[in-house]
Design a protein around this nucleic acid. Structure first.
Lengths: 210, 210
DNA sequence: GTATTTCTGTTGCAAAAGCAACAATTTTTC
DNA sequence: GAAAAATTGTTGCTTTTGCAACAGAAATAC
């Protein structure tokens, strides 16, 4: 995430100054948290990778968000509207800071430094989520698999300021993230390679146009 | 929007207590604002209906959000990630309160009541946006037109606590909102009627199952 | 109150995407 | 380092969706 305040200092405050913080480790494939019940959790991923996933009634999996170091999650960002189960799954070994808050909107009674920083910066934290979600909506609104793939590649490309970049997850997961059939996506990727629009080796993609 | 604080009082504060507020009227089809340049706008729709729309390079229109009375918009909620143009279009006569802020994250120097309420409630305001966006993502992630239609109908149904409800916009616009071809959507709607899953008369839909 | 525009509804055909199944490769596990 | 599991890559076939075009109904403009 791109924030104007210092996220590392924020995490230090979080770790050192608030007695309600837990630090937990999760192994690959463990469930870090669910968004079913209101647990009032606010989490920071200190290291590792994790996905927020949803399984619908047809058994289709959707990767709603992908988290890496310093990303923030928890149902404070996610008021549940439907009965679909939302899980945060560790994709690698993860170190997570978990804060159980009573009511994050209002100021802490203890007036600790963490709470001060949090309430100062909460709008910005949430706005950065909004940006991510809007990006996601823009991708999902695209009408074809080709446009979704190229749209996603463009985002990664401009994020890294380079035409060559690594995919943050497997092609299987990418299909779940773009909400399309994997084999259809592979076929489209093959066409993109054949037409000389992208190059691919391993999980590295290079955009060849303009 | 469903907020724990009183939105009407908030609007009164906004209108009466802050000298930086403009009240403007827009006729149907007028552009209320664009999200291209940073204008630092925060807007409240006092009356009428408006859509946040995006036109992509292929000429496809997407209705990103639909606003009705008391909804809040402006690029404070929307950090632009791509070069796509975002417009807020009045769908009927609209009354809009526009506040040009210097920096909405920090406290106002004047210490006026509006700014106080705003900074107190900004996290909740933005979180309500997050909820809407997540609902949208869930809809767009559905794999078929049928699931998108039924998913949207379910949202309207549970929002109104009734199996019969009106569509907030035309079928043409609904197709743009669900990001599908209009004629394909009409066909699917026909099948849903033929199979006795929904009933439709005018812009009223009734869910017939369970 | 007539003309014009927008919206609804429909259809045939073409293109895209999904599904299922399987082999080859890579990664993980023990 | 062998076995198991996951991922990648491919293909034939089916289903769904998009596109284009048009007619009738409804809404809007003048």
């Amino acid at each position: 995430m791109n924030l104007s305040f210092n996220i590392d200092n924020f995490i230090k405050d979080f770790e050192n100054n608030c007695n309600k913080v837990q630090k937990k480790f999760f192994a690959k494939n463990e469930i870090i948290t669910t968004y079913i019940e209101k647990r009032n959790q606010f989490c920071i991923l200190k290291s590792g990778n994790a996905d927020l996933v949803r399984y619908d009634l047809n058994g289709n999996k959707t990767i709603v968000e992908h988290f890496s170091a310093n990303d923030i999650f928890g149902e404070v960002f996610y008021t549940i509207t439907t009965n679909n189960e939302l899980l945060v799954e560790a994709k690698s070994k993860c170190e997570v800071l978990i804060y159980i808050y009573d009511d994050i909107h209002y100021k802490c009674k203890n007036n600790c430094k963490f709470h001060h920083t949090l309430s100062e910066n909460l709008p910005e934290l949430i706005l950065s989520k909004v940006t991510q979600l809007n990006m996601r909506i823009e991708l999902l609104a695209k009408r074809s698999i080709r446009d979704k793939l190229l749209g996603y590649f463009n985002i990664l490309s401009s994020r890294n300021l380079t035409k060559t970049f690594s995919l943050p997850f497997s092609l299987t997961d990418l299909a779940d993230y773009l909400s399309v059939d994997r084999s259809a996506m592979m076929r489209e990727l093959k066409y993109l390679k054949e037409e000389g629009i992208v190059k691919k080796s391993g999980n590295k993609i290079t955009l060849l146009y303009k």
